[in-house]
Amino acid sequence: MASRQRIRAKISKTDSARYMSHLDFMRTFERALRRSSLPITYTEGYNPHPKFSLATALPVGYSSVTEIGDFFLDRYVDPYEFARIMNEQLPPGVSILATSCISLNSPALASLPQSSVYDAFLGAAARDEDLQNRVEGFLARESVQYVRRPKEMSGGELGEDEEENAGAMGERGAPNLDSQKTPPEAGGKEPGSRQNGVKGVKKDASAKNKKTIDLKKAVLSLKVTAPGAITMWVIGCRPEEVLESLDLEHSVRRLATITKTHFYVKPRDKWLDPMEFDTLPGFAGRAKWGM
């Protein structure tokens, strides 16, 4: 069925929910939508799923009070009711904070330039005066070159192995039945190579992704807003990368709690709140059913 309503929701992902990956977060909404019995539109095809999209992928470990999701419905639901019903179905740490109706053909947020405001709380580990100096030092520089490394292998490596194994495990209960072991003579694979195939590919790919960015251009604003706390407005970079370029020690950075507090898009020449811009004069799309 064609969608007849699009609800944009501002969503928080806090407390233990911040340990969910983006995929986990997507699945959480899919399941909450199924449980809710709301008239969500289902995608066509053999594997139908509820039709919704999230504007950004929040890294694991970050909190946010400003994730944005667009939900497509088969018939009209009061946006407040939508939030109320969904909040009954979402797990602790995930809530819909606000909703608004937007035009069905309003551009997808992922297709617009995006920027975000983050709070990074370093706590007592960072001395205030020192923090202030580092921030001023950063702002005084012409450019701040940052070499973006491939995804760190520490910790993640174990996780990847595990995923492969978990996949092989599913079929018959016992974890090790479907081991992809090939006899040396028959398959020509080296013993033990089964675990390395995927990883090898990833390494090559990530080596290519290595690139340098200018953080000075990526940071729209940066300031110390409370003892041990930094607030930054950034485009296309992660707050961790900014913290790293402030030369804060790894042990200090690792324990920083990071919260995304604002999210903006730039449909034309200004940064605007995605919850609002569709209703601003000149922005509203035409109502067009059957999308």
């Binding site: 407390d15 233990s16 929910a17 340990y19 969910m20 990956s21 986990d24 959480t28 399941r31 909450a32 449980r35 694991v60 470990g61 179905q89 979402l90 797990p91 602790p92 740490g93 910790g155 993640g156 490596e157 174990l158 996780g159 595990e162 690792r254 324990l255 709690t257």
Partner: peptide, 21 residues
């Protein structure tokens, strides 16, 4: 707990707060 989880792979498996918990 959060300190423990700051450096481990797949931290979601060590927290509860799942639906129906």
């Amino acid at each position: 707990r959060d300190k423990l989880l700051s450096g481990v792979a797949k931290p979601a498996r060590y927290v509860d707060d799942e639906f129906n918990v």
